[in-house]
């Protein structure tokens, strides 16, 4: 037995996984049943496998456009956030400069503003710029909370790279951009993966800003769900199927970055 384990760990883990999966199982269960069956009788397992709810969603552009919109702005946001956070994280990690600590704390405070009231100024700002109902507007708005997080996480990873590596590279005649791209980036691949995962996650799950800044052309899937539900009474089956489909991209992303997460976050900071 390793020094890391404690008694009952298996039981805890299994119980917790059951707890995590039960609501998701139930969502999948609902998505396979018709509305009459759902409200009719309770059942532990679906009586029959009917994909009608999924077919309904995947053949209706007003539904699947939502997925495409969400994926587009989330991707733009993730790429932009990680790109501009990298040099900043390097600066925070390697140098001390005027006001660095205050700047760092200020960045964090941008996660602290309650959205309800800020929605209107956001709307007006992006209207004034003519960006309303575009993917870029949502991507930019989500950068407010993703960029600080990206800087925070990347700073930990870059601090884990010994400073001697920078110095050696400069002595070898590397310019800063070349050193950054050729030497530093490959060393913190895991960190970039983890950071991208978090940016993707927080942008994918956010609804209030995304809904406020879009109306038709860039409307996210989560917003489509709220509208359809209230209009058609309670269409539990379609709602559940749409819910299942919103989990799929996330599950794919986490599958791809699982190794990076396992490799260790904030390796330097710890």
């Amino acid at each position: 037995m390793s020094a890391r384990s404690f008694p009952g760990r298996r039981i805890l883990l299994v119980l917790y996984l059951v707890f995590t999966l039960a609501p998701i199982y139930w969502l999948g269960h609902m998505s396979l049943r018709s509305n009459e069956a759902i409200t009719g009788a309770f059942a532990w397992f679906p009586e029959s496998f009917s994909l009608a709810n999924y077919i309904g969603i995947l053949t209706d552009p007003s539904w699947y456009d939502g997925y495409i919109n969400s994926i587009v702005y989330v991707t733009i946001n993730t790429v932009l956030s990680v790109t501009i956070a990298l040099p900043a994280a390097y600066a925070f990690s390697r140098y001390s400069f005027l006001g660095d600590k205050h700047l760092f704390f200020w960045l964090l405070t941008n996660r602290m503003t309650a959205p309800a009231v800020f929605l209107l100024p956001f709307f007006q700002l992006y209207t004034a710029l003519g960006l309303i109902d575009t993917h870029i507007a949502v991507a930019l708005a989500h950068m407010v909370f993703n960029v600080p997080l990206a800087v925070w996480i990347l700073e930990g990873f870059i601090s884990g790279v010994p400073r001697e590596i920078d110095e050696t590279a400069y002595i070898d005649g590397y310019s800063f951009p070349r050193f950054f791209i050729r030497i530093l980036l490959p060393l913190i691949k895991a960190g970039i993966g983890v950071t991208a995962f978090f940016c993707f996650m927080f942008s994918w799950v956010e609804l209030l800003l995304a809904r406020t800044l879009t109306s038709v052309d860039a409307k996210p899937i989560a917003a489509t769900m709220t509208r359809t539900v209230s209009a058609a009474g309670m269409d539990w089956g379609t709602l559940a199927a749409a819910g299942v489909l919103t989990i799929v991209p996330g599950a794919l992303v986490i599958y791809f970055v699982r190794r990076y997460i396992a490799k260790g976050f904030a390796m330097g900071r710890v």
């Binding site: 995590t20 998701i24 996650m201 989560a222």
Partner: peptide, 18 residues
């Protein structure tokens, strides 16, 4: 890891729905 992280990737209103 993948199973555990699933709830994190569910849009927040869908969490409410679930």
């Amino acid at each position: 890891l993948v199973l555990l992280a699933m709830p994190l990737l569910v849009p927040w209103n869908v969490v409410g729905t679930i």
